[in-house]
Amino acid sequence: MATFQLELVSPEKLLLSRAVEMAVLPAAEGEMGVLPGHAPMIVTLRGGVIAVTEGGQITERLYVAGGFAEVTPDRCTVLADEATPVAQLSKAGAEARLKEAEAAYAASGSETPERRDAVMAKLLAARVAVSVAEAA
C-alpha cells in the first residue's frame, strides 16, 4: 500500500518520523483520517489520540494534548503541544492533571472568553487523557 511521511514533533523532541499508510488525527472539528495524496491542509488539533496504521494494522497510538497539523499529498507534520505514547500514559498522572484543569476552569469565571476557551480546551484534553489511560 502507498505510504506517506508522517512526522510528529513536540517542543521537547522529535517523536516519530517515518513512512506510514494512514494516520487518524483528532482535528478540532472532528477526527480526520489522512491517507497518501491528501489535499494540502492546515488544521488545529484538540486533545486526543493519533492512530498510526502500517501494514493494515494500527501500530502506534499517541496521545496529544493539542497542537497543529500540516498535511500535504506526500507528508503530514504534526506539531503537538505535548505527545505521549498511549502505553506510557499514567492514569494517576492524567487524573491529577484533570483535577488541576477542573480547578483552573472553575477559577476562570471572570476571565476573557478567549482565556476561558483556552482553559476549557485544556480541561477537555485532560478528560480525554484520563479515558485513554483507563482504556489502555
Binding site: P11, A27, E29, P40, M41, I42, V43, T44, F68, L79
Partner: peptide
C-alpha cells in the same frame, strides 16, 4: 505558489490566533 493552496480548518484567522502565541512560546 504552492503555499496558497492550503485548506484551513478552522479558518486561517483562528489557526493563526493559536499558532502565533505558540510561536512566541517556542
Amino acid at each position: 505558489g504552492p503555499q496558497a493552496l492550503y485548506e484551513y480548518e478552522p479558518s486561517e484567522e483562528e489557526i493563526l490566533a493559536t499558532l502565533l502565541p505558540q510561536n512566541l512560546a517556542i
